[in-house]
């Protein structure tokens, strides 16, 4: 478990165009430069928003990674919910889902 390193990858990716280029050109090489366990590496390798959320990545970091991957806002919220269904409750951090997973923005979504 190295949530710090996992978040560090995404922090750097969110703010550094060179890292974004490395991500697209050779993701494995980029990930090799961080001390990640297998699950964390898989989450990044697959762009698995749900798993990253459950592993405890801070939402203010994760939402920009989702945007970087081209994921729309409501899909991003759903991916977090599905992550909890698949992998269980958020394991660390302050961005846990404390409600029942209901949408609070349904009306806008239905437009």
């Amino acid at each position: 478990m190295s949530l710090y390193n996992l978040q560090k990858v995404l922090y750097v990716l969110n703010r550094d165009p060179a890292a974004q280029e490395s991500y697209r050109a050779d993701l494995d090489a980029l990930l090799d430069s961080y001390d990640l366990d297998d699950e964390e590496r898989r989450a990044l390798r697959d762009g698995d928003i749900g798993l990253l959320y459950v592993l405890g990545v801070n939402g203010q970091i994760l939402m920009h990674y989702a945007a970087f991957l081209g994921i729309e806002w409501f899909d991003y919220l759903d991916m977090m919910r599905k992550g909890i269904e698949r992998y269980g409750p958020v394991r660390a951090g302050i961005y846990a889902m404390t409600g029942g997973g209901d949408s609070f923005t349904v009306e806008e979504n239905s437009q």
């Binding site: 203010q60 919220l77 977090m80 404390t98 409600g99 609070f104 923005t105």
Partner: peptide, 11 residues
């Protein structure tokens, strides 16, 4: 507020 969680929009 609960931004960037599934509860986003809850107030």
């Amino acid at each position: 507020h609960w931004p960037a969680t599934p509860d986003s929009g809850k107030i």
